[in-house]
């Protein structure tokens, strides 16, 4: 089961729309709420990063009986130093983005913390692709 969504750059009024849509779908599956929470927190951070830092892109979410796989793909400008971007507190957010309440530099760390695996492909001037996966366990506490 795959869902595809488009994400527009700089449209902060829509930032979070994908994660809230996908949350509604996950809630139909009677998954542990702690698992849903992890997925949505990570997805939200990825979505906002596309809005705030990229030229726009798309997100696909695939649910299978083993996992939820999320692919966040944008159209550039890329992340020059991935390890640095992953660091808590590192941010290149513009003043405009900071005024919207983002830019604490916690997003990527949050994605890492909440997912079971995170893989980033990017380089300066290139597209960024982030693959997140979450194993479906049915015993997670609520």
């Amino acid at each position: 089961m795959t869902y595809s969504y488009d994400v527009q750059a700089k449209n902060f009024t829509r930032a979070g729309a994908v994660s809230s849509e996908f949350k509604k779908e996950l809630k139909k599956l009677n998954l542990p709420s702690a698992l849903i929470k992890r997925i949505i927190i990570a997805l939200y951070e990825g979505e906002v990063n596309v809005v705030a830092h990229s030229y726009g892109g798309s997100i696909t979410c695939t649910i299978s009986s083993e996992s939820v796989i999320i692919t966040i793909q944008d159209t550039g400008p890329g992340i020059p130093d991935i390890a640095l971007a992953m660091k808590e507190g590192f941010s290149t957010a513009s003043d405009e983005v900071r005024e919207m309440g983002f830019g604490a530099g916690m997003g990527m760390a949050n994605m890492k913390k909440n997912s079971d695996s995170l893989h980033i492909t990017s380089a300066e001037g290139k597209e960024t692709r982030i693959d997140l996966s979450f194993l479906l366990t049915f015993e997670e506490g609520t």
Binding site: K28, L29, N30, L136
Partner: peptide
């Protein structure tokens, strides 16, 4: 909200 108590069936 869930379509089935069993997540696999719900999926």
């Amino acid at each position: 909200l869930s379509l089935d108590e069993n997540p696999i069936k719900a999926l």
